[in-house]
Amino acid sequence: MATLLRKIGLIRLHDRDTEDPKHHQGSLKGSKGSQKSNKLCQTANESNILSTPEIKARKLDQNAKDRDKEKEKEKASKDASKERQQPQQTGGGGNKSTGASSVPAAAPAPHRQHCSQVRTRRLMKELQEIRRLGDNFITVELVEDNLYDWNVKLHQVDKDSALWQDMKETSTDFILLNVTFPDNFPFSPPFMRVLTPRLENGYVLDGGAICMELLTPRGWSSAYTVEAVMRQFAASLVKGQGRICRKAGKSKKAFSRKEAEATFKSLVKTHEKYGWVSPPVSDG
């Protein structure tokens, strides 16, 4: 019996000695050993799970879905790139030799189209009416067939004036003026200047600029016609005691548009400050 017990004891000792010492160490060390054991278990479990046919098929299906998503992203990116390049490629009139392209110009706004039509109709009507005049007060010639750029010949002023006498003595048949019409005419005034002969006084300033309130945005009315403006100008020449310049050298110097525009801007600024009265001598 004792021999049997000893054998049983030896078997138990043998079983205890053959157990994994690391397993006992992990249980003794607590959480640290437990974490390592869990990690090894998770790895083993994943390996076992992925080895099954069903999960392999599921993983292949997921990979296929991922590839489809990548293709969709690439396609969307290409479509967006084409949309960004399309305005440049469709711009007509591009320079093929250099690869440059031009974007088509934007269509004019409706109100601009309307103003252009109003200006054209108004000037055509006025031109016809001036040509019907029988008193030969003024005549009009288009500058290079431009309806918006007129050369106007003023043939008559007050026959009792010194200016009319000067015109007779110098064989001057007319006073030539240039009239240009802005895009928004008749809602804005035309720009008018004297070309020939060179005049003194009569509200004619440097460059042939004309000092008349009705030629400014403040004094202008869309009801004014070119004929009415020319009659007002003829009256202001006489009122301002305008004369034909006969001074040696100075009389042959031609008026210039650039000088006229600068002078007109200056006089408008002066009159906006002081009103349409005689400004101080210091301001010209």
Rank of each mutant, 00 (worst) to 15 (best):
G208S: 07
V226W: 00
T196L: 13
A262P: 00
A76G: 07
K65A: 15
V103L: 13
Q165S: 13
R122W: 00
I55E: 15
N146R: 06
L163I: 05
G94W: 01
A105E: 09
K56D: 11
G240F: 02
Q89E: 10
V140K: 00
Q89M: 07
A109S: 09
T225E: 04
P104K: 03
D149R: 07
S102I: 11
V103D: 04
K75H: 10
L5Y: 10
F181I: 10
L50M: 12
T18Y: 07
S282R: 07
E141G: 02
W276E: 08
G249F: 01
L10T: 12
R257S: 11
V229K: 00
I138P: 01
T90N: 08
L176P: 06
S256T: 15
F137H: 02
T170N: 12
I55G: 08
E144L: 10
E144A: 13
E272N: 15
K159S: 09
G94P: 02
T270L: 15
E126D: 12
D158P: 10
A100M: 04
I8E: 10
S47W: 03
S81I: 05
K75W: 05
N178M: 05
A109W: 00
R218N: 12
D66H: 08
F187H: 11
R122C: 08
G202Q: 04
S171T: 14
K159G: 08
Q232E: 10
N184K: 09
N136H: 08
T196A: 12
R119N: 01
P21W: 01
L199S: 06
D173F: 05
D149P: 02
R243M: 00
G275L: 02
K75S: 11
S101G: 09
M230D: 01
K153Y: 11
V140R: 00
Q128P: 02
T120I: 03
A64L: 14
K258C: 11
D173N: 09
R246N: 12
L50N: 12
Q232K: 09
K168C: 15
R257H: 13
K78M: 12
T90C: 05
Q113S: 07
G240W: 01
R84H: 01
G240T: 07
W150G: 02
R122A: 03
V204M: 03
K125W: 04
R131I: 04
F233D: 05
R84T: 04
T263I: 07
S188T: 14
T120C: 02
R193I: 14
V118R: 00
D66P: 01
M230K: 00
P182G: 07
Q232L: 12
S221Q: 11
K273I: 10
D160I: 07
R112W: 01
F137E: 00
D20C: 08
T43H: 05
E129M: 11
V118P: 01
T170R: 14
T43V: 13
I210V: 15
Q62P: 04
G134Q: 09
Q35D: 11
S171G: 09
S27E: 14
V226G: 01
P87S: 02
R112I: 12
L214I: 15
E261T: 10
E227G: 05
F191G: 04
L154P: 03
L13H: 06
W150C: 04
G275S: 03
M124D: 08
V118N: 00
H24A: 15
N45I: 12
D135G: 00
K252T: 15
